[in-house]
């Protein structure tokens, strides 16, 4: 099992720069949107953009897209546990601090 698996070939410079441009673009959008009053959607949009950005970084800069699937499983387990924990915590909070 311990034969040395060579890490996969990395994509070219061009793809990285493209991803970077996308990240900068998303940053601009999220900053610009902060100027508008989106009421209840403010947090949702900001977080959605942050999630897209982090997906770009993990998939391309961190090569998760092309790497061994085991890393995707690891990350999924970690995120899943985190989400479950946060949801269970809010079952308590929404009762003790009801929204007015």
């Amino acid at each position: 099992m311990s034969e040395n698996t060579h890490t996969q070939q990395h994509p070219g410079y061009g793809l990285y720069i493209l991803v970077w441009a996308g990240l900068v673009g998303l940053t601009t959008i999220t900053v610009a949107l902060a100027g508008f009053n989106l009421a209840g959607l403010t947090v949702v949009t900001a977080l959605a953009i942050a999630i897209v950005k982090s997906l770009l970084v993990t998939n391309y800069f961190m090569h998760v897209k092309t790497d061994s699937p085991v890393f995707r499983v690891f990350i999924f387990v970690c995120i899943a546990i985190f989400i479950v924990v946060i949801v269970l915590t809010f079952f308590d909070l929404t009762y003790r601090f009801p929204l007015k």
Partner: peptide
Amino acid sequence: WGHHMFSTGISDTS
């Protein structure tokens, strides 16, 4: 984990 906190006043749902 919440079963360590049953008597602390956390919500009935949880």
